[in-house]
Design a protein around this nucleic acid. Structure first.
Lengths: 118, 118
DNA sequence: CCTCTTTATCGCCTATCGACGATAGACGGT
DNA sequence: ACCGTCTATCGTCGATAGGCGATAAAGAGG
């Protein structure tokens, strides 16, 4: 319970709440917003890497992706704006991780809109 | 079984095949492509209307949407390019319907990428 | 053939995206 | 304080998105 491991306190909490209607104009805008954030191969790749690694430093993403550091940073910004990921400052680094609740919310909106009983 | 009802033969068949890898660069591009198509509120609204109505004439969509006819037509074009919908010419009209297999494919790609066992 | 209806396309405009290099800002280590 | 490292932001550029009105294209019907 000591404060030795600062590198590990990135992802766990996730206190963001994803509530809101599942139908109507607002829901459609929210769904479209998530979809837009997913709408680029690099961003999908970032999320895939974060799924595999649980958490990840920006620099590690840059190593694995075929684009420049600044470009990765901009994609991270969009993912963060869509609340699909979270970034935690850890000294000079930033630790990124997925916001699972956002993926759940996206799935809920998708299902509510595109399932026959919806 | 006669050929009286031409207006009804829009959606049923759906012989498009959605096969391909669920992982890797190609899958990520395909997933991003679907997401991009979903990434606009009007296009989500179009799909929602088509879910409700089963099939729909372009003009009916225009009536329900707050944008011009030409704009609706362009959104329909993108949805068609993403193979999320299908359009069948019926005289001077065009009957649109959802391509359910595309939604299934999208969901499969999404799950394969963003589920913990994937 | 002409006309009406319906839909797609064109042209034009503004706004946003996506990429990059360069630079700034924040932190740790010496 | 001074570096070196890591990340975000800025400025720029070309490409694409998204909107509209106007126009073209295609079929139905007189």
């Amino acid at each position: 319970m000591s404060t030795d491991l600062k590198t590990e306190e990135c992802c766990p909490p996730a206190k963001e709440e994803f509530v809101g209607p599942l139908h109507g104009e607002e829901a459609e805008t929210e769904l479209a917003s998530f979809a837009r954030a997913l709408g680029h191969p690099i961003r999908v790749a970032i999320l895939r890497i974060l799924m595999k690694r649980q958490e990840c430093i920006c620099g590690e993403l840059v190593e694995e992706l075929p684009v420049a550091q600044s470009t990765v940073s901009q994609h991270l910004k969009k993912l963060k704006e869509a609340r699909l990921i979270r970034g935690t400052v850890d000294g000079p680094r930033v630790c990124y991780c997925i916001e699972p609740q956002a993926l759940d919310r996206f799935r809920k909106l998708f299902d509510a809109t595109f399932t026959t009983e919806g």
